[in-house]
Amino acid sequence: MNAYPILIVTAVAAEADALRAELDPDLVVVEAVGVGPAAAAAGTARLLAARTYRAVISAGIAGGFPGRAAVGGTVLATRSIAADLGAETPDGFLPVDELGFGSSVLDCDPVLVKALRAALPGAVTGDVLTLSTVTGTAATADRLAARFPQAVAEAMEGYGVACAAAGAGVPFAELRTVSNPIGPRDRAAWRLADAFAALRAAAPAVAALP
């Protein structure tokens, strides 16, 4: 058995509880750190400073891009992208990369991604966007789909967790299950029970990571 556990970071307690129910706490530590990239980065950095982990996973429910990730399905990120980190211009959005102030894209660890894909063969793989304001209109959904043709889902924490992991030199991955399609906000149509069931079903794949 590996000497160090894996850390899973979620936004809220309900996500953490769903994962903990399926995992041995000696092998995988699950902590909820708050909603949004700032809370995710700060909370993850605190946890990584307090204990040694062999990997950190950002996990939870997400919105899926229609036609790319089905509601109730599981998504694995190849990259976590801060989709709203940049500047507006008359010609459109400029990511922070083009402004010369760093990068809005962080790659997930390829070894972790490969292992998760093998354990979760039904999962969809692609970019997962991190947004401080989640999508609520068809126009925004269309713009994001055009800007990010490889994006399969959006959430609010992945990039923050990835930044903390990179700063600590710890391998990072992001795993999401889809509760709703992105676009016009319709809470009545969200399938939270299906997303949480998929999250619980995916938990053993994390425990089996190298």
Rank of each mutant, 00 (worst) to 15 (best):
E98R: 14
V29F: 00
A168R: 11
G122R: 05
T125H: 00
A69M: 09
L112D: 07
E98I: 02
R191A: 15
A38I: 15
G72K: 06
P210T: 00
S179H: 05
A123K: 03
A201R: 14
R191Y: 09
P184S: 10
A207N: 05
A141R: 13
A18S: 14
M1V: 14
G86R: 12
D84M: 10
A162F: 12
V178R: 02
D194N: 08
A208H: 01
G160T: 03
A32Q: 03
P37N: 04
G92H: 05
D107Q: 12
A119S: 13
T140K: 14
R51C: 04
E31H: 12
T10R: 07
A38T: 15
V128E: 06
G73M: 07
L112A: 09
A38Q: 13
G100E: 02
I61G: 03
G72L: 07
A197G: 15
R191W: 08
G34D: 05
A55W: 11
L99H: 09
D26I: 01
L116R: 05
R20V: 00
T177I: 05
V71N: 02
A83M: 06
V111L: 12
A59R: 05
V152K: 13
P181E: 14
V33T: 14
G100C: 10
C163E: 12
D91I: 00
I182H: 00
L85Q: 11
D26F: 09
V28G: 07
G36H: 07
Y4G: 00
L27T: 13
P204R: 08
F101Q: 10
A3Y: 01
A18H: 09
G64L: 04
L27Q: 14
A38Y: 12
G67K: 04
A153C: 09
A162Q: 08
P181V: 07
R185W: 14
A18Y: 10
L85C: 06
V75A: 15
P210Q: 01
P121S: 06
I57S: 02
L94E: 11
G36A: 03
S58N: 14
M156I: 04
A32D: 09
R176W: 08
R185C: 01
V178F: 09
A62F: 10
E157C: 05
E157H: 07
Q150D: 15
I6D: 03
P149H: 11
A205W: 11
V30H: 03
A3C: 02
R79G: 00
V134N: 03
